[in-house]
Design a protein around this nucleic acid. Structure first.
Lengths: 340, 340
DNA sequence: AAGAATAATGCAATCGAATGCAGAATAACG
DNA sequence: CGTTATTCTGCATTCGATTGCATTATTCTT
């Protein structure tokens, strides 16, 4: 109640200069004499003044807010990414506003509206399918948009993803080297580019090794369906003895089903590989062999693209792919002669 | 490039009304005739107009932004909470801006400054120790502040937490009912109220049952130290056969150490209870008995308190505790005659 | 149908800072 | 030391809305 809103004018009065002078001191790139700077800084400190970002945004037309749209936060991958993104943007003087979107088109549309209302300077869409007209809206408004962990084929949009195709291929090479009897694949949500690319790489890789998938079911990136998919695949005597599950979270579920419900051992009866390398993959209870998503690099690239787009005003169309290594752990040990 | 910034003035022109009229149509609580509303809505739709939230904030003095400070996002508990908080606030027309803070005082101070710069209407501090002068700053600025999942003793601040004391006590009752030989406790970071309250409840509960802790080590809420703490506690032959670990993530680590490194079985050799009920607790690989934090309720209460504080302008001092049930799973099955 | 009460509207000021412009102060230079 | 080139500074305007006030249009009463 004592001090209600210190404005640049208050500081100006106390420092004996004009309001513009105060503004200039706090606007980098503006010119002010050392004497003025000192006076203003001193007065500002005494009053506890800090520029009102919102007011500044109004006139500069930049809010320094980046909108992040996410559908789920319950896949470990996203919180990790969010954390890194937030930190990286902080370095650039930007901040993240979180927008949750359920998967319905209607909802996503509303979310985009809300982001525009807040005048976000850029949008990061993490695994959220923005329709092309929504993406167009953003382009029209001049707001750079990056798809994180999803690419949208055909349309010239910017995306940053893991090199899912290469990863899938590497997993194929790895599993084939074990010379298993039968190879299975448990797919994620078919609409997701991650799913498609991983599978495509996997199939091509198997092909190159003269192998193919003997069994395929769909887990849709959720626990319930994954459990069903695992049961369907492994309830028969001639089940696969090697399986690639499209992401880590599904892989955990599959492993649980194998061990607890079907009394199969991993890696004894079945060797199993996931994708993402989320934190629990390293936990001894799972010790999952998987391909790492290099979240740090992905975030770095995302920030770089965004900052560049904001600076130049023109969004570069690019599909950036970050390759990640295969991390060999207990669920699928290295085959004889495996060099990595 | 075609349409650069549609303002209320553009809409006004097209609808043949004054700019104030447009504003009134989009400001709820303002009066406008049906005719005007229709004209404006139509023009707005045609032009794709939406009010600029930042401009509005400037004059109303409310940004409709809630600042969330978090230190870690790598404990599953926080992403879940964030997701719920974001959704709950969306209902109220607010949005969450995320601020990551490392544990250093300096950094937290900077973060608070940044939040104030953005004119946030309220602050939620999740497990971050805001010093009392920082809290005072917020109070002075009239910004309601809620501690989420941490309480700060003595100082009259608002907090929303689980009823950690009661939870700890219940765990004691539960473990005592197993009549174990020796009972252990692995503590979290001693500066955290969650840690202190859980332990206090646990000790009092044991006491009431005529038991006490035979071994205590500290895991500090992080993996490395927890592993060391577990090794220290269980490397001796007369190790505890029942243990309460201060949170789930540490409990997973402990379980991993017991099983993979010390070749002890859970629950055969040791029964083990955690706290939080984060998603992996239900995974078959762990199947952890734990006390649930009712995140949904906690978030609800947080939002309620904040909205009320924003509306009335006066922050109510309250320490809201949400009790949560003990969830019995495989790591510590129900003892004979356990009713819950 | 006239007068009172209420609702709707436009005008103009305002929120807090950034910035173009023109004039003042300082620096640079010969 | 006089000029010219720079750097500073203040004035006034602007960003895109909201809102108090005065005025006009409606609705309600009787």
């Amino acid at each position: 109640m004592p001090n209600d809103k210190i404005t640049s004018l208050d500081v100006a009065k106390r420092a004996g200069v004009s309001q513009s002078a105060v503004s200039r001191v706090f606007t980098k790139g503006a010119s002010a004499s050392q004497k003025t700077i000192d006076k203003v800084r001193k007065a500002a400190k005494e009053l506890g003044y800090r520029p009102n970002v919102l007011a500044r945004s109004l006139i500069t037309g930049r809010s320094r807010i980046v909108g992040l749209v996410v559908a789920y936060l319950d896949n470990y991958f996203y919180p990790v990414a969010l954390q890194k993104l937030s930190n990286a943007l902080k370095e650039e003087g930007y901040h993240v506003m979180v927008f949750m979107a359920s998967d319905t088109t209607k909802d996503i549309e509303r979310v985009v509206d809300e982001m525009l209302d807040y005048q976000v300077d850029a949008i990061v869409a993490a695994s959220v399918p923005l329709s092309s007209d929504l993406a167009g809206r953003c382009r029209d408004e001049g707001i750079p948009l990056v798809f994180f962990n999803r690419s949208q084929a055909g349309e010239n949009l910017t995306s940053v993803t893991a090199d899912n195709y290469a990863g899938g291929k590497e997993i194929a090479r790895f599993l084939a080297a074990h010379h298993p009897e039968r190879i299975g694949y448990i797919a994620g949500f078919e609409g997701a580019s991650t799913q498609r690319d991983r599978e495509a790489g996997f199939l091509d890789g198997l092909n190159a090794a003269g192998r193919e998938v003997s069994s395929r079911t769909v887990g849709n990136f959720n626990t319930q369906e994954t459990r069903a998919a695992a049961l369907a695949m492994f309830s028969t005597p001639r089940h696969p003895d090697a399986v690639f599950v499209a992401n880590d979270h599904m892989a955990f579920t599959v492993m649980d089903v194998l061990r607890s419900e079907l009394h199969l051992t991993v890696p004894g009866d079945v060797i199993l590989v996931g994708y993402d390398d989320v934190p629990p993959a390293v936990w001894a209870g799972y010790s999952l062999t998987t391909v790492r998503q290099r979240t740090g690099r992905m975030v770095e690239e995302t920030v770089k693209v965004l900052m560049n787009a904001i600076a130049t005003g023109e969004a570069p169309v690019a599909n950036i792919k970050i390759a990640g290594p295969l991390i060999v752990r207990g669920s699928a040990p290295a085959p004889k002669g495996w060099a990595g």
